[in-house]
Simulated assay, not measured.
Amino acid sequence: MSFLSSFDISASGMSAQRMRMDIAAENIANIDTTRTASGGPYRRKDVVLENYGSGSFEEALRNAANGKGFASRNVGVRVSGIIEDDREFKRVYDPDHPDADAQGYVNMPNVDLLKETVDSMSATRSYEANVTALNAMKLMAQKALEIGK
C-alpha cells in the first residue's frame, strides 16, 4: 500500500460518515412529516456503504507479505446507495389532523428518534476515528521529512 493511499482511505471514510450524519439529520427533521411530494408520510432513509479497490483481506495480506502492497491506489469506502426503510408507518389516533383517515388515524413516518440519535453518534465517532488516523499519517510524514535534516 502506498503512503498516499492511506490519506485516500481516511478521506473516503470521512466522506461516507458525513453522508450518514446528513441522512440521520434529514430523518430527524422529517420525524413529523405526514405529507410528501410522492404522497403519504416520509419514509426513513438509510445509507448503504461498500468497500472498493482493496479486494479481499486474504489478497491484501498476501500482497503485503510479498511486498506488493495493494494492487490499486484507489481504496476505501463509498456510499453505494441510499435506501428507504420499508417498515410500516406508525398509526396515531388524531381525528383533528388534516391527514387523518375516516377512522381518525394518521400514518406517521417510520422514524425512531432514538435510532437516529444512535446512528448519528456512531457516524460522528467513525468520522473522528478517520480524522485521528489522518492526523497520525500527517505526523508520520512530517517526522519522515525531518529525518533528512
Rank of each mutant, 00 (worst) to 15 (best):
R91K: 12
V111S: 04
E116C: 11
S54Q: 07
A102P: 06
V118G: 11
Y42T: 04
G104N: 10
G104E: 13
L113K: 13
F89K: 07
K68M: 04
L113M: 14
L114P: 03
G39R: 06
K115C: 06
V79D: 01
G76Y: 01
F57V: 05
Y52L: 01
N74L: 08
T34E: 06
P98D: 01
Y93I: 00
S56K: 03
S120H: 11
R87Q: 15
A71H: 08
F89G: 03
G53H: 00
S122R: 13
L114W: 10
V92D: 10
G76I: 00
N66E: 11
V48D: 09
L61F: 07
S120P: 07
R62K: 03
Y42W: 11
G104K: 14
S54P: 02
N27Q: 08
N30G: 07
D46Y: 09
N30A: 13
L49C: 03
F89C: 02
I82G: 05
R43D: 07
N27W: 14
D86T: 11
S38C: 08
Y42N: 06
A71D: 13
R73F: 08
D96R: 13
E50Q: 14
T36L: 13
L114G: 09
D96C: 07
E50R: 12
P41W: 12
K90I: 01
G67W: 04
S54E: 03
Y52V: 00
S80M: 10
V106F: 14
G40I: 06
L114N: 14
G76T: 04
S38G: 15
I31D: 05
G76C: 07
L113C: 07
G39N: 07
D112Q: 10
P109H: 13
E84P: 05
S54C: 03
L61D: 02
F70E: 00
N63R: 02
P98N: 07
A64G: 04
Y105S: 07
G69Q: 04
R87T: 14
P109K: 10
S80V: 07
N107Q: 15
Y93N: 03
V118T: 12
G39L: 05
R62V: 04
R43N: 08
R62G: 02
A65R: 08
S122K: 13
G76V: 02
A102D: 13
N107D: 15
N30H: 14
N63S: 01
S54M: 05
D119N: 15
